[in-house]
Design a protein around this nucleic acid. Structure first.
Lengths: 260, 260
DNA sequence: CGTGATTTTGATTGGGGTCAAACGAGGTGG
DNA sequence: CCACCTCGTTTGACCCCAATCAAAATCACG
């Protein structure tokens, strides 16, 4: 009902380099991307507070009053979703490390979607008006802000494309590739990803059901392009996965499947 | 292959009030929304040129170099889409009157999606750098620009929600309601809309096929919520259509279909 | 070690895709 | 004015994929 309760507001020590933007692991993907330490420190000084949110905790609810805040994801993952009249959630985005939350409500009075953490996370809270004011004074920040908005739009376009794929296999392959693209950590030479969501949530995101997610993942494993270990996925054949995302089925039957 | 060919660049007379932003029919939905004539005239002076595009003509192609331009739709409709490797299009957005095109490529070198007119249209071309510079000088414009970006993001969220509806009926109902919301012209007391797209394109937009669009439209007609006359649709029972978009089927069998 | 959440698995069904043909309207040229 | 062509729409038959419902299994956590 109410906003995020104050007990979750854990003011982390912000004086150390590690806790400031300077030593942030998301620095390269966040507002200060590509900027020198001096500019980065200026951006850091815009941060009002840093929060720690536990998996499952909400940041804001649907229809909650907008408070002129923008949040940067320092670590963890979030989901943004709307609740339909009949009670199930439709996910509108999955902001991860370095992403800004709250850019979609500038002219609005109330949030059109809710946001909650899908993993233990740390957020940096900024005042939206102060951020804009700073942008006006520092052109580099202004350009970066525009770029991030633009990226966000492009990301949403990608989501629309993914959602309109006809086959479940394509959607999941595409989703996994996206994850692999952002979280690049290797394991025995293979790209591997940790799913930040339950099967249920992945299903909501892709317009499928949890049962289908499970089945398709196992199918992809059977086809030999990846290995599933609960939430941990090892991509053993990334090009093959890419081919599936592009719509080419496992069986190479189609010699000339030009559709249009 | 190449950009919009120069012969389509029809420099319309811009000196008259009717052709300027002051007398534009999209004024209330475009950049100068809510501004006085003086500010509106300033915005008008930012317009480099106005183009007339015929139905089917392209504005830019995928992978075309970005030229630092932003386009405002003065009249008509556009579709933005990506081509998949196997040749069919995935529509990422359907900008209409008053919308800005080209906001999604600020930090990019090349367009990730193509744009073309789905109806005879008039575009206003602006220089992106000059627009931003003007925004810096006029806070009202800056706020409006942010608001439009924000709106665009919210629109995309709505698209994602629509695409993840499980049933074709819901998607189409939702799409029609969106159309009705923007184009409000009445006919014998009933809201009616003219589809700016072919069945094929609507299908691409909603992740369905043209055959399904046809069948669902006729089904909705049989259910009595609308009348189909080629591209012209009369909504005879808007609340009923809304109920369908919300997922409540025609048959009121479900007393407690809580799913989650 | 029990409890609830998450994941897996199975059997069944229906919605929408696919393919193909027929139809209709608008435009062009003879 | 009509023949012709093309594009968009309608319609039908068939089939497959993913939803649904339900139960079992596994994991996470106190």
């Amino acid at each position: 009902m109410s906003a995020r309760s104050p007990r979750n507001v854990i003011p982390l020590r912000m004086d150390t380099r590690a806790m400031s933007c300077l030593g942030c692991e998301a620095r390269a993907a966040c507002l200060p991307a590509g900027m020198d330490d001096e500019t980065c420190a200026r951006i850091d000084s815009l941060v009002l507070q840093r929060y720690r949110l536990l998996r499952g905790e909400g940041l804001y609810q649907m229809n909650e009053a907008v408070r002129g805040r923008v949040y940067a994801v320092r670590s963890g993952h979030f989901k943004c979703y709307r609740l339909t009249p009949d009670g199930d959630q439709r996910i509108t985005g999955l902001p991860g490390r370095g992403t800004l939350l709250g850019l979609d409500v500038l002219g609005c009075e109330r949030h059109a979607s809710a946001a909650s953490a899908t993993a233990d996370s740390v957020l940096c809270e900024l005042s939206h008006p102060r951020l804009l004011e700073a942008a006006r004074r520092f052109p580099a920040l202004e350009r970066r802000l525009e770029q991030m908005l633009s990226q966000e739009l492009a990301r949403q376009h990608g989501l629309a494309v993914m959602l309109s794929y006809p086959r479940a296999e394509q959607k999941i392959a595409c989703y996994l590739l996206q994850l692999a693209w952002s979280s690049r950590h290797l394991e025995a030479g293979r790209v591997c990803v940790d799913l930040p969501l339950t099967r249920q949530d992945i299903g909501d995101y892709l317009g499928l059901t949890d049962a289908t997610i499970t089945r398709q993942l196992l199918r992809l494993q059977r086809e030999g392009v990846l290995r599933v270990e609960r939430r941990h996925i090892v991509l053993t054949d990334q090009p093959g996965l890419q081919r599936m995302a592009d719509g080419e089925s496992g069986a190479p039957e189609a010699a000339h499947t030009a559709q249009r």
